[in-house]
Nucleic acid binder design. Structure first.
Lengths: 249, 249
DNA sequence: CAGTGGTCTAGACCACGGT
DNA sequence: CCGTGGTCTAGACCACTGC
């Protein structure tokens, strides 16, 4: 048999395995917002009959998406679009402990916002044209009222217009849920590059440290489900708070 | 049906799914050296009939092992025990470029070797008793004859006795293949913790840098297929050569 | 209780590698 | 050419969730 495997009209490569075509079609349906993060998708029985494949083949496609972190399964309840938790990912690099000792999310304060033309690095990372504008945020993240991270954030104005008029004190501790609510922009994945830099005077003042001391710098490009870049972010934190654990094979 | 699923006499938890029992039994057979790294394991047909499960169930167990990096499959050839390449993993953290520009493995030189009693941190990491001795190596890794990494390595003497008598210039650039050849010790996985430190005088001299400047420190505990710790390693490199990229979801 | 995902079967045919 | 893993089917029964 050789039937098309698209429920969304999205063009698929017929030479690919069926489970791969299913995977791609499901990604497309998530990327276009047919199922939003947190929602259940149709049952395995419904999907396999709609796509005219066996349950085993459908399972393989869903297995792939679960492995990629796009879906989660819950026996007896259903399969859900996962809501990524990338915003809090700095916790992976820095051990923030509150005065009580247990790990807590730092609070955030937006210090500055402007609409400008980005430099080459940001423009390329966000795949913008020469004339496209960005919203730039300067943001400080604090633990027990002490500054621990300094962030610069660039957002394409075309996608994030509602943020250009938002009062600075209405920006929340976690921005990504706010992106989703106010701008319908969902961050699905991100690529981060770590390096060690030295604090210049301005950064040292922000982080209440000496200029010239080492800081960990994280350069992040965040992407939506369709793989399009959504946000460029530059974060710096004191190197003495840095600790990262990794398992390798 | 309810048949036992062990081809190795290894005790298995019958309440677990069959594919999980298969997975555990296969891990055990690899851990005991029944199939060595690089070797091909029996075909799917042979294994599924030996274990009295369907090919689908066996495939799921093998899929797990492939995802864990223990096995690799090659269509038309067979399924192989993967030879882990952990020794070269520092390439993930430091961008070593030779004078020609392309990335190259640094060379290595063992500066010192002694048999001693380890401190608490090493003893706990290697799960040794109070009276157990270790072989300690001090090692420098060089790129174009320039030192880039300084390493301290601790090995349980009981497992690595042949290295206690090896001439220092006979230690090779990559130690793990040598562990396997001379001591029958295979490193399968490792856990690494990164942090930023300051170079003390001795380290600064080794790495030809100024004391007090930042270095990236990597603490590694390496494990065999059975999950037993095999090696403790402490590596330091100049922070300005550090760059690490990570994809998050 | 009904409905969900989780596990498992006993095959089939295909694509690739090496002879 | 044969043997390998790769894909796929059309079911079955189980374990868990929530009404």
């Amino acid at each position: 048999m050789n039937r098309p495997v698209s429920a969304s009209g999205y063009p698929l490569d017929e030479r690919l395995p069926r489970y791969q075509q299913l995977h791609d079609d499901l990604v497309h349906r998530i990327a276009t917002g047919e199922w939003l993060p947190g929602e259940v998708i149709p049952t395995e029985a419904q999907l396999s009959s709609a796509y005219e494949v066996s349950t085993g083949t459908l399972r393989k496609a869903v297995d792939l998406l679960v492995a990629e972190g796009v879906l989660t399964r819950s026996q007896g309840r259903g399969t859900f679009v996962r809501r990524p938790q990338i915003d809090a990912s700095m916790l992976r690099f820095f051990r923030f402990k509150s005065s009580s000792g247990d790990p807590v999310l730092p609070t955030a304060r937006v210090l500055k916002r402007e609409v400008t033309t980005p430099d080459d690095e940001v423009r390329q990372a966000l795949q913008l044209g020469r004339s496209d504008k960005v919203i730039r945020l300067s943001r400080l993240r604090l633990m027990d009222a002490l500054p621990v991270l300094a962030e610069e954030i660039w957002l394409p104005r075309a996608r994030f217009a509602p943020l250009a008029g938002l009062a600075l004190h209405d920006f929340e501790d976690l921005l990504y849920p706010q992106y989703e609510r106010l701008c319908q922009q969902v961050v699905a994945t991100a690529r981060e590059t770590l390096s060690v830099r030295r604090a210049d005077k301005a950064l040292a003042r922000q982080l209440t440290m000496e200029a010239g001391q080492p800081v960990i710098h994280v350069r992040r490009v965040a992407f939506d489900f369709a793989g399009k870049p959504v946000e460029f972010r530059s974060t710096s934190g004191r190197a003495d708070g840095f600790q990262y654990e990794i398992e390798i094979r």
